[in-house]
Simulated scan of single mutants.
Amino acid sequence: MTLYSEVSAFTRTPGHGNRAGVVLDAAGLSEGEMQRLAAFLDAPETVFVTRMEGGLVRVRYFTPTQEVAFCGHATVALGLLLAQEGHWAGEALALETLMGRVPLRLISEAGVPRQVWMEQPRHETRPVPRELRAELAAALGLDARMVHRGLPLAAASTGLWSVFVPLLDSFLLDALEPDLEAIAQLSRQLGVGSVYAYAPLGVSRFAARDFAPVLGIPEDPVTGSAGGALLGLLAAQGRLPLRGGRACGVIYQGHVLGTPGEVEVEVEMLGDQVVAVHVGGCATVERQGTWPLR
């Protein structure tokens, strides 16, 4: 029997945010067993701890259909569970992922773990061919004139690649009727995991929706890795205010699905270069159970 937990990340409210499966003791599981358990839980991602040694935790991430290199919301969920189960009291801790080491930071209130911050893998960007902009808009169910011309349409990554499509306002975002087959085709063509539509709510606040059918996730409720990549992209292009070499912002996601959550992001800059992207959020344990090995 394998003990698993279901944890909602980027929220303090049960039933909101983004659900992740967390398995703290997966040392005895094969890759196939991890994949089957991830499919059984049917969360957007499940994180498996394969080894804990000192301040280093080795992990693997699976969607219901495949392994992925990194997942932000599952990392936040894991960090909170490690703290609640007595494995982490706030000392230096890092995850060993397929994308490299991811340092974690714990924030507690009156001795109670409340928020987990992670330094995401290296921020990267690449352009999107102009001729695909109209196709991306059409795949989202929009006319190309509804794409925001003052914000970047580009691909970026802090562990997983996404294409970021800016919209004129959040009303258009809420009304999207995506063609998931077309989004999957464009994702494969561009070598990304998702198409991430976003709209400005203020100077450093954004609403977003993330479609990842190519990963077996029609719409991801709240996406930490993509949220960090977006704010890094905006900071690098001078679209966020800088204070002391840092740009901060918040992304609101999941409201259309009835599971709202908030992703906090802090970007360290050196000139116009992104030095580091930090993503933080709350989490709440929903339930625990056991899964028989099959």
Results as ranks from 00 to 15, higher is better:
Gly159Ser: 12
Arg114Met: 12
Ala155Thr: 09
Asp179Gln: 10
Trp161Asp: 02
His148Phe: 01
Asp179Asn: 15
Gly191Asp: 13
Ile183Gln: 10
Ala182Gly: 08
Trp117Gln: 06
Pro127Phe: 05
Arg130Asp: 12
Gln120Thr: 12
Asp179Ala: 04
Asp179Arg: 08
Val165Ile: 10
Arg145Ser: 15
Leu172Trp: 10
Ala154Lys: 07
Ala199Arg: 12
Ala199Cys: 13
Trp161Glu: 05
Leu160Gln: 11
His123Arg: 02
Ala144Trp: 05
Ala134Thr: 13
Arg105His: 09
Ser194Tyr: 00
Glu124Cys: 11
Gly191Asn: 12
Gln115Ala: 07
Met118Arg: 06
Val163Met: 08
Tyr198Ser: 06
Arg188Met: 10
Phe171Tyr: 07
Leu132Ile: 07
Gly191Lys: 12
Met146Tyr: 06
Val147Leu: 15
Arg105Ala: 13
Pro129Ser: 08
Arg188Val: 05
Pro127Asp: 09
Phe164Gln: 02
Arg122Trp: 10
Val147Ala: 08
Gly159Cys: 07
Leu136Asp: 06
Leu106Gly: 03
Leu172Pro: 01
Met146Ser: 13
Val128Ile: 15
Ala182Val: 09
Leu167Arg: 06
Ala184Arg: 14
Glu181Cys: 03
Ser162Gly: 09
Ala155Pro: 00
Arg114Lys: 11
Ile107Asp: 11
Leu136Cys: 08
Trp161Ala: 01
Pro103Glu: 02
Pro129Gln: 11
Pro200Leu: 08
Gly141Cys: 02
Val192Ala: 03
Val147Gly: 04
Ala137Glu: 06
Arg149Asp: 12
Phe171Gln: 14
Gly159Lys: 11
Leu142Gln: 09
Leu151Tyr: 13
Pro200Arg: 06
Gly111Leu: 14
Leu168Gln: 08
Gly141Leu: 02
Pro103Gln: 01
Leu167Asp: 09
Gly141Trp: 06
Ala175Gly: 13
Ala156Ser: 07
Leu168Arg: 10
Ile183Cys: 02
Ala199Gly: 09
Ser108Lys: 10
Leu160Lys: 04
Pro200Trp: 10
Leu180Gly: 05
Ala144Cys: 03
Val116Pro: 03
Ala182Tyr: 04
His148Pro: 03
Leu140Gly: 05
Gly150Asn: 05
Arg114Asp: 11
Tyr196His: 15
Val165Trp: 07
Arg130Met: 01
Thr158Val: 12
Met146Cys: 10
Pro178Ser: 12
Thr158Pro: 03
Val112His: 02
Ala154Leu: 10
Leu153Met: 11
Ser187Trp: 01
Ala110Lys: 13
Arg188Glu: 14
Ile107Lys: 09
Leu132Gly: 09
Trp117Met: 09
Pro103Val: 00
Ala138Lys: 12
Leu160Val: 14
Ala137Val: 03
Ala134Leu: 01
Val203Cys: 08
Asp143Gly: 11
Glu131Arg: 14
Gln185Ala: 14
Ile107Gln: 12
Thr125Pro: 00
Pro166Ile: 00
Pro200Gly: 01
Leu151Ile: 08
Gln189Arg: 15
Val203Glu: 15
Ala184Glu: 15
His123Phe: 15
Pro113Gln: 08
Pro103Leu: 04
Thr125Asn: 01
Leu167Ala: 08
Leu172Thr: 06
Glu124Lys: 04
Pro152Met: 07
